[in-house]
Design a protein around this nucleic acid. Sequence first.
DNA 1: TGGTATGTTGACGTGTACGTAAAGAAAGCA
DNA 2: TGCTTTCTTTACGTACACGTCAACATACCA
Lengths: 192, 192
Amino acid sequence: MSAARQPVPAPLFRIGEVAKLTGLTTRTLRYWEELGLLRPTDHRSGGERLYAGEAITRAARIRDLQELLGFSLAEARIVVETDDVDVLDRVRTEFTSGTPTPARQRALLDEAIVANDQLLARLDDTLARIEAFRTERAEKGERLRVRRADLGDAPARRAPERAATRSTTRTTARSTTRTITRSSDRKGAAQQ
Amino acid sequence: MSAARQPVPAPLFRIGEVAKLTGLTTRTLRYWEELGLLRPTDHRSGGERLYAGEAITRAARIRDLQELLGFSLAEARIVVETDDVDVLDRVRTEFTSGTPTPARQRALLDEAIVANDQLLARLDDTLARIEAFRTERAEKGERLRVRRADLGDAPARRAPERAATRSTTRTTARSTTRTITRSSDRKGAAQQ
DNA sequence: TGGTATGTTGACGTGTACGTAAAGAAAGCA
DNA sequence: TGCTTTCTTTACGTACACGTCAACATACCA
């Protein structure tokens, strides 16, 4: 709707800022760049990296792929590359009403669709497995609690019962648990 | 004392059999033992490891913790150790009606309960994150499909059956997942 | 009884995903 | 302008989770 003709200063971030915003380290950002996962949109005269805001969401996606699905960075690259297709495609269409390469564009889109579907399937599979695991654990918790009740008195601990139906609600519940924390979680954020 | 009257041959497995049943390698099984995650129930005269059937389910749990939650083996050990408590506890109660150490047993149970609750919270957190990710991806899939439709004709492609990563034949894609249905997602949209 | 398969304990190798200096250049600020 | 940060590249180090021989002992089966 708005004509973005003017040099609206798109916010660019230095690598340290990106690191803070994403919770990653600068080393990680450079490493990911080295592997072709996350490229800065620009470099300054001095060679300094400058990232667009989009890079931050992209970084978050990569982290999700890593942590949630156990993807290697090589695998994650494939996924985010199809994102590139998507973005490029959208950008192109915004700038030029006519499609630049019709057949080519269709091919790229098809590719992206397939990749996305595969990812979705993978997500569903993982979700199903985790839910099964969760059910098992919930039952185990029940059993444990019954046993403890059978043992009688002792400090009456409250039963959490927190999670009821976590559907679309994005429980921002930062795991306050400190006993079991992932070692793979980098020390990046304000934890600790 | 308690009479283990009949030498009912509890099925014991050699390490190679366990490997086949679990899909792990013998190296992995020995490594896990080295870290205290999975101990054979017995050794034969020759020093050969013998595993009970329980070890197989335990191995599966450890794998789940690894793959589904990204636990390190050290973290996984903590979890399965509380399982030990559970099992030991149950076994004891089965064999001797009287609780062997009342206070101690309560403490162990409480510990196990807390650990289990923490794990549950972690599972819920991960589930929520994956579901959010899934929603995002489903929407992206919608957008991609719309774009492709806008491009008109072209061969109506079917989604290739190829799995992205290794085996993963378990792509049962049985959507037991709570359908997040914001709009019209549900993974069924895939595959034409 | 012997051959083959399977097991055992080292011990070194490997890939991934970074961490951690080091040495110097550029940016930001008073 | 000078000082302090932040950045750059280069390079070696590291932790985890195994893989992969090697040399040898034991188990199973005809």
